[in-house]
């Protein structure tokens, strides 16, 4: 019995010396999703497939629906068709939570698309909001454009939450004209 064990171990080690030739065999063809994906024109911030377009200033997904932002946040979007001729509409949907207004009284949101500034908006009450602005054609020099958002104030990191907190966003994107 002991001899058999010894032989089995030697066999196992012998196979090991063969090196790392053994890989995960029978890899299913659908182990990856390969279909070509484009940049999205409208990004739902809780959709992991488009999270790479949230290039800075977004915290993690909460309740599968939204994310807190920092004071400055940005997103890269695909320009809608015909935007370089007709322009488009920028739509940011979200909410200003109670603690933000309670502590900061009011917050002003400004945005630019590829450096082209858009009119700001000031929020003085908590609740849901829609920031909607016309974007001129000159803001679409390429198929992909970056939209930068800036808040004049944000909740500083504190004991309860170690993050800088601006507003809550659920989706951001362009609507074609």
């Amino acid at each position: 019995m002991r001899r058999l064990t010894r032989v089995a171990l030697a066999l196992a080690f012998g196979l090991t010396f063969g090196g790392c030739r053994r890989s995960a065999q029978n890899i299913p063809a659908d182990a990856t999703r390969e279909e070509t994906r484009e940049l999205a024109t409208m990004v739902h911030v809780a959709d992991p497939r488009t999270s790479l377009q949230l290039i800075r200033g977004f915290h993690e997904i909460e309740q599968n629906a939204w994310r807190w932002t920092m004071a400055r946040f940005a997103v890269t979007l695909r320009a809608p068709s015909g935007a370089s001729e007709k322009g488009a509409t920028l739509v940011l949907q979200g909410a200003v939570p109670d603690p933000v207004i309670a502590q900061l009284k009011a917050v002003t949101l400004t945005a630019d698309v590829e450096g082209v500034p858009l009119p700001p908006e000031t929020f003085t009450r908590p609740g849901e909001y829609l920031y909607r602005r016309d974007v001129p054609p000159k803001a679409f020099p390429a198929e992909a454009v970056t939209v930068n958002f800036t808040l004049d104030k944000a909740l500083a990191p504190g004991e309860a939450d170690h993050r800088e907190l601006g507003i809550v966003v659920t989706s951001v994107g362009f609507e074609a004209k």
Partner: peptide, 11 residues
Amino acid sequence: LANVTGPFYAV
């Protein structure tokens, strides 16, 4: 795993 080479490169 989803191949996102295109959009990632664009960003």
